[in-house]
Design a protein around this nucleic acid. Structure first.
Lengths: 329, 329
DNA sequence: TTGTATGCGTTATCAT
DNA sequence: ATGATAACGCATACAA
């Protein structure tokens, strides 16, 4: 009963007789032996670990993604090394290298906050992709060993605006708080929706809230200020459900009825949409499907199989009480 | 320039001349050398990793804890291996051993769902504590190498009931969905609050929702059924903010005014309390402080310093629009 | 089928 | 201050 035989038993090699296998198994059981993961990692050059980077794991949307990813990865036999980077570029870069130095087998960048609009800001991601496969969940960046899984939020926003306008709404206010990859796309979609109707987006109705972790009260006040300054809008399209909640709070503050006086559409279809009163219509970016595609893709890459470089899934509009849209053809 | 010297430079040993140090540093820089974390782990028998177990990282409360813990641990030089176990005992046990086999330096059990009421169900935690220090965040279990950091929710619930009764409320309905350590304590606190007023908790007004991941609509319907069956209550105390949101939805459904006809108090003081309309009064269990104490305690244990076995912090009641309580002495 | 011996890349111990 | 060398515990190629 040598060390090699034990190793073979543990790794399920078939080059061991049933009798020896039983004997080894028994001894292992009796002594409660557990193989040393570090030694194993050293020899095999992997500990079956994936690095999960996300700006803020307390954000309800990102948290759901992290939860889903972790479960799927574990089912595929991988551990998840979590790293909450925050929104600062420097920190993101630092922590990315840190995870890399821990010899993870792959990286998932959760959320679109990692892809910058200027190419220079993405150099660190490309550098990482030289060492391990990098999956972008919600962002997109073309490059060797870089894979994107995302939702076509641009088309979703475009369609939402189109439907609001078709239902007779005149002025759709757009509310956002981030110019991440996803943020830029959504804003573009908003403008395209207006273009589809032969109009251009109304001046001054695209409002950016300058904070990642904001308070609903902030949003309410922002809209109230705008309203009191004379701006008029009969619909709010928000890049995030929490922003949409703020819009609902604003409506209540100024005595506007939802959806009669003000239609509201949020984005992410998070549980928050149901907590709000009235319940919010929201764009569902099908996070579960995205996570599944992300993990499947990563596993494919790790096994040397092909994986699409940029998978964009269509979104769906989940209609609730904050809109009254006519059926679409 | 031998391998040993390089190691010394990397680990900042002072037994290396400034000249050699510079030379080594330069070569490292030029070749982009990164020490192999596995080999290091094998030699030092640690990779500075803490296992984070939580039932559901998508739960807003747990997500906030995970986010906070990860950041603090990283600041202390530790990586976080996340594991979302779900609520089933068998899975929790399986994943706990899995993390242990990865040779983590310590474990944090996030949330009170890991401590069972029958002692037998906690054997796996004690077993784990024989290998590495185990911190319980939100639960409590006495034992060697076991440390608890939690909030005195029992006293908080008791105080909340007392204040509701003192304000003239007659029948406080208690809404919960878990008999975890925390759940049991909260329920006991509810009963004690009634006892303080010389009454016993009204029959049939402690309602358990039999689901971890529930829908606000479920809560609304549960209360509506109860109400329609003749049950009367003028206050709802909920073990979770989401349950409280359901109570608010119920009030709207049956035309009850908040707080005049129905006072509502939630628990966890999560962002959800602000999303709700009206904004919810909620018990703040000071999660940030708990996480800080948890990480500080764990670091202390790992450094061989003393750490309290059971730290219970007081909660605070954050009053918002869903209650109208008189000032307390 | 089983055992022996080597390598994985560090850190630490001991010489020099 | 620096270099040589032995662990660390596993997997694996090779020998038997």
């Amino acid at each position: 009963m040598s060390i090699a035989t034990v190793s073979r038993v543990i790794n399920g090699s078939d080059r061991v007789s049933p009798r020896t296998r039983q004997k080894v198994l028994r001894v292992i059981e009796e002594n409660g032996y557990t193989p040393n993961a570090f030694a194993r990692g050293l020899g095999l050059n992997t500990m079956h670990t994936i690095g999960l980077l996300c700006a803020d794991a307390a954000d309800p949307y990102l948290a759901q993604a992290v939860n889903d990813l972790e479960r799927r990865l574990r089912q595929s036999g991988y551990d998840s090394l979590l790293c909450c980077t925050g929104y600062e570029q420097e920190t993101k870069e630092k922590y990315l290298s840190l995870l890399l130095s821990k010899r993870v087998d792959g990286l998932v960048l959760v959320g679109s906050h990692f892809v910058e609009s200027e190419e220079a800001g993405n150099a660190y991601i490309r550098r990482a992709a030289q060492e391990v496969p990098v999956m972008l969940l919600g962002g997109a960046l073309a490059g060797q060993n870089l894979y994107a899984v995302r939702c076509d939020e641009r088309a979703a926003m475009r369609g939402a605006v189109r439907r609001l306008l078709a239902s007779g709404r005149q002025n759709v206010l757009y509310l956002y708080n981030s110019m991440s990859f996803s943020g830029r796309n959504k804003l573009a979609g908003y403008r395209e929706g207006y273009a589809d109707a032969g109009r251009s987006a109304p001046e001054g109705l695209a409002l950016m809230l300058d904070a990642y972790r904001f308070d609903v009260a902030q949003v309410r006040e922002l809209l109230a200020r705008k309203w009191d300054a004379g701006a008029r809008f009969d619909a709010v399209l928000a890049a995030d459900d929490r922003l949409a909640v703020g819009a609902a709070k604003f409506a209540k503050l100024r005595g506007l009825r939802i959806p009669q006086d003000l239609s509201i559409i949020g984005c992410n279809n998070s549980p928050i949409a149901r907590y709000c009163d009235p319940e919010l219509t929201s764009i569902d970016n099908r996070l579960g499907d995205l996570c599944a595609a992300c993990v499947d893709g990563l596993m494919a890459v790790l096994e040397g199989k092909p994986c699409p470089a940029d998978a964009a899934l269509p979104a769906a509009l989940v209609e609730r009480e904050s809109t009254d849209l006519p059926k679409e053809e």
